[in-house]
Amino acid sequence: MSVQRVDPRPDASSVAGSPAAVSEQALGQDVREARRRRLRRARRRFLAIRIVSLLVVFAAWQLYGMHTIAILFAPITTVVHQGYLLFVNNGLGNELGYSMWTFAVGYAIGVSVGIVLGMLMGAYRWAEAAVSMYVFALYATPMVALVPIISLWIGFDATAQIVIIALFVTWPMTVTVFHGVRQIDAELMEVSRSLRLNRRQTWVHVLLPGAVPYVITGATQGVAMGLVGVIIAELQTQLSGLGSALQTQSQTYHTAAALAVVLLIMVLGVSLRAILGLVHRRLVPWLRIDRGDGREG
């Protein structure tokens, strides 16, 4: 079937341009257009539900906060106001900056180590045999348990905090990427062999792109784990950052201010997740195809 010997007549150049094939494509267009409309409707409906839900929860928070003692709880308006005051008077901005800095460094280390370890374990059985038991053991261990020992080894400064954050991120990342690489379709590996891709080409065209969705899933889990790591590290080593703000405010019974710090951490987590969601859409366009149920891949 040498393609070079193509029939020169233009309208004969497409054997498959038969009416049946064309109508199949046209039908596909219609179906997709209808699905897009359905998706848009669904998206609007879910946005409305989300807004209503937020309004209900904030209203309940406000009402309950107004009818309870200030030492236990506070209405959301007070909490937001206290948060504003913390930024203006107590340098919460600096604390936030410090926490974000240690988080960024620890998270980057954790994600990188997780990708490399997970990929090696997924692609090579010898790597899995060599290290998987440690990875799974550490994955199953609450990292909090290691914090006192890490302090013993490294101390209480930012370095120790970064190591703790990285440890929180690394293991879920490694395990997710490992499963991702392992799950790359056996048939696709066979196709790669059949197409005579060499080792480098197989990594570039098959293993790495195939693992991207799992890397992003792991990175998203890593955000949550990393934030846990930040607060634990800041409470358990040298009191610093958002952890210190939280500790100070709650121990002095400034409950509204403590809640403000908690709210800030929540907003942080949600924002970072949202950013990763955008990254996901950018990096995995082949999964961004609507499934017609109002969700996207």
Partner: peptide, 10 residues
């Protein structure tokens, strides 16, 4: 693993 399969194929 797939990596080793690649080596065999090589």
């Amino acid at each position: 693993g797939v990596g080793e399969l690649m080596a065999m194929e090589g």
